[in-house]
Design a protein around this nucleic acid. Sequence first.
DNA 1: AACAGTTGCAACCGCACCCTG
DNA 2: ACAGGGTGCGGTTGCAACTGT
Length: 270
Amino acid sequence: MGRQPCCDKLGVKKGPWTAEEDKKLINFILTNGQCCWRAVPKLAGLRRCGKSCRLRWTNYLRPDLKRGLLTEAEEQLVIDLHAHLGNRWSKIAARLPGRTDNEIKNHWNTHIKKKLLKRGIDPVTHEHLHKEAKPDESSPSPAVLLPESGNNNVMQENDGIVINSEDNSRSPTENSSSTEDSLLLDSICNDEMLLSSLWMDEAPLVDASWNKNIPPAAENTNNDMGYPSWEENYTWLSDCQDFGVHDFGFDCFDNMELSALNNLEMEHKQ
DNA sequence: AACAGTTGCAACCGCACCCTG
DNA sequence: ACAGGGTGCGGTTGCAACTGT
């Protein structure tokens, strides 16, 4: 009812972001931090809606993002958390450092859903689609099978939702996830308090460190959450952005002067 | 090589929630 | 208590890349 649109539809660009736009947004956020998103496009010189800027930043440009496919461990964790939380992707994403809700949602819809269906599991309820196909279901109450934590397969009862274990064919050693992933998974799956707190929405979010208005220089310092430093992320961005994040002129890097932007911009145009 | 079908992901849309005055 | 603005979230769409014929 008379609610103002988040942006003036006229003159607002839509569709894929260009390298130039990314650069502007990154520079702006790194210089000013995240402030009122509505004001960002104007201040950053972008013809985009503030919402679009926020989405682009949180889903793609944020330097603390991991790229690439989810590891087996992460995938299993997503399944586990989904069984508890349902389609609350942001809550799930909060448990997977460096992953975004959008990324997880996409991965769920394109990969995990199919995998579960293949195994005869309903991706919505996490219950077996064909009970008869599972003759040994003698357990009176549904149980949650948490992913391998070290060497113990933990069957855990939980709120009447069944999570099937990962493909039985997958041996623990086959789990290609990194030690970090395993530790993360272990810590989460073994932490009943955490699991219950997920229900209560009270647990501290793991990515809470990536927050508003943090000057890049401060962010650059070590954090005790073990997130990649800005230097590390810079490397990531270099790898992942085809236009080269070195074009961005992070002012937190001594040797990255804003003036370099212009040079690199020219480079990009070639 | 060309085309059609499929897949995967980035981005958009609209609603809901939260905060502030 | 209420209204309005800002932000976050989940669902959906569009399109590029990939695969099969």
